[in-house]
């Protein structure tokens, strides 16, 4: 499974933010997206995950190969940790939870309701969801927010295992995750406003 992105342009609120984004992500490889706040990392990831259409460009694999995780974890407060995971496993057509609970050190919390978890524990549960999707490419937006050092290490190991299993990961982050990965700074891809003399069909 190789993800090739060619000349991708994406827009936020109708305004182009990134253009000409090109990179390749091979199986077993992780790519860290860098760049200042507001540059369009989230927009790029949402576009790849199929949540919004690209303005132009080509993505080699369909969104169905990607598991997307963003700031919100999609947890239901009144469901327990296991129930939350089991729900997403069924939605993604997987049987059982595999090692998701163990990998993120959630075994002891398995029967606690999500509303009684700390922010970091919720985050770990949100990331554990990735393991039950069974999808090869992880598309992660700031996955380590509110995680402590030990949890970041857990997450790093989970990503490493995923890569060893032939998966790939595209991660927008500002911190060091503790494993070897290529980096891509998206700042050079910032969209340049086109000059126009007159009214134009697109208005932007």
């Amino acid at each position: 499974m190789e993800l090739t992105v060619e000349n991708l342009a994406c827009a936020r609120g109708g305004v182009p933010v990134l253009e000409g984004v090109s990179f390749t992500l091979k199986a077993g490889q992780a790519l860290l997206l860098r760049g200042p706040n507001g540059i369009g990392k989230t927009t790029l990831l949402r576009t790849l995950a199929g949540l919004q259409p690209a303005l132009e460009g080509r993505v080699s694999v369909p969104p169905e190969t990607m598991a997307y995780a963003a700031h919100a974890d999609g947890l239901k407060a009144t469901l327990t940790v296991t129930e939350n995971l089991a729900f997403w496993a069924r939605i993604f057509g997987q049987r059982g939870l595999g090692s998701a609970l163990e990998d993120f050190n959630l075994t002891d919390l398995a029967h606690r309701q999500a509303q009684n978890l700390s922010a970091g524990q919720k985050r770990r549960l949100g990331l554990a969801r990735l393991l039950v999707t069974g999808r090869p490419i992880w598309v992660l937006d700031e996955p380590t927010v509110s995680l402590d050092v030990a949890s970041v290490a857990l997450f790093g190991q989970a990503v490493k295992r995923h890569l060893q299993g032939g998966g790939a990961a595209l991660i927008a982050t500002h911190i060091d995750l503790g494993f070897q990965a290529e980096e891509l700074d998206v700042t050079p891809f910032k969209a340049v406003p086109r000059q126009m003399d007159d009214f134009d069909e697109a208005f932007v």
Partner: peptide, 16 residues
């Protein structure tokens, strides 16, 4: 509620 907690995004990217 699903929109607030991000479930809707995840459901939109799910296989169903």
């Amino acid at each position: 509620l699903d929109h607030e907690d991000g479930s809707l995004d995840l459901l939109a990217t799910a296989p169903i």
